[in-house]
C-alpha cells in the first residue's frame, strides 16, 4: 500500500517532467517511467509514510489547500522581517535557543511543523524530541524563554491546522 502510493506519486512527477505538449505522446518515455517508478517505489516505499490511510481522507486535502495561503502570508512576513533586521544599521537581533511543546505526534506532522517554523518570522528548528513532543527553536529576537508562552507564540498558529491535515 505504501509502495503503491509512492509509485503513483513518482509516476505523476515523471509525467510532469516529460509530457510532450503539442507533440505526439512518446510511449517509450512513458513505459520507462512506469518501470523506474516501480523500481524506486519498491525500494523506498517502506520509508515513505507511517499511516498510508491518511491519503484517502478527503477533508485533509481541503485543510491543506486552506493552509497554503495562511502559511504563504507568514512566509512573506518572515522575509520582510529578515530584510528589516539585515538592512537596519544597528542590527536589532537578540538571538537564543528556546524550547517549545507541541501536541503533534506523527512523523509527517512534526516534519511539516518544523519546516513551517523554519520558514516563518525569526524562528528556525534546531532539534526535535519526538517522544515528548519538544522542539528546540533558534529565535532571532527572543521575546520570552518560558516554554508555555513561547509555544503560544510560535507553534499554536500552525498546530491547529496541521493537526487536521496529518493526525
Amino acid at each position: 500500500m505504501k509502495k503503491g502510493i509512492l509509485i503513483f506519486l513518482l509516476f505523476i512527477a515523471w509525467i510532469f517532467l516529460t509530457w510532450p505538449f503539442g507533440k505526439e505522446i512518446d510511449w517509450q518515455i512513458l513505459i520507462s517511467g512506469i518501470f523506474i517508478s516501480i523500481f524506486v517505489g519498491s525500494i523506498f516505499g517502506e520509508l515513505f509514510t507511517e499511516n498510508p490511510h491518511n491519503f484517502f481522507g478527503f477533508k485533509r486535502y481541503l485543510w491543506a489547500i486552506l493552509y497554503l495561503p495562511y502559511w504563504f502570508w507568514y512566509c512573506i512576513l518572515a522575509n520582510l522581517d529578515v530584510a528589516y533586521r539585515v538592512l537596519h544599521p544597528n542590527l536589532p537581533i537578540r538571538p537564543g535557543i528556546v524550547k517549545v511543546k507541541t501536541n503533534l505526534k506523527s512523523k509527517s506532522g512534526l516534519t511539516a511543523l518544523a519546516n513551517s517554523i523554519t520558514l516563518t518570522p525569526g524562528t528556525m528548528t534546531v532539534e526535535i524530541e519526538p517522544e515528548n513532543g519538544y522542539l528546540y527553536i533558534h529565535w532571532i529576537y527572543v521575546k520570552t524563554d518560558d516554554i508555555e508562552k513561547a509555544s503560544e507564540l510560535i507553534v499554536r498558529r500552525f498546530e491547529k491546522i496541521l493537526e487536521r491535515i496529518f493526525e
Binding site: C75, V82, V86, L87, P95, I97, T118, L119, M124
Partner: peptide, 26 residues
C-alpha cells in the same frame, strides 16, 4: 537580502536563518 544577511549577521544560526528564509522565497 538573504546574501546581505549572510555577510552581516554574527553566527552560524543567524546566518542560516537569513539565508534559508530569503533564498527559499526568492
Amino acid at each position: 537580502f538573504g546574501c546581505i544577511g549572510l555577510v552581516r549577521l554574527p553566527d552560524v544560526y543567524n546566518r542560516l536563518q537569513a539565508s534559508t528564509k530569503c533564498v527559499t522565497l526568492g
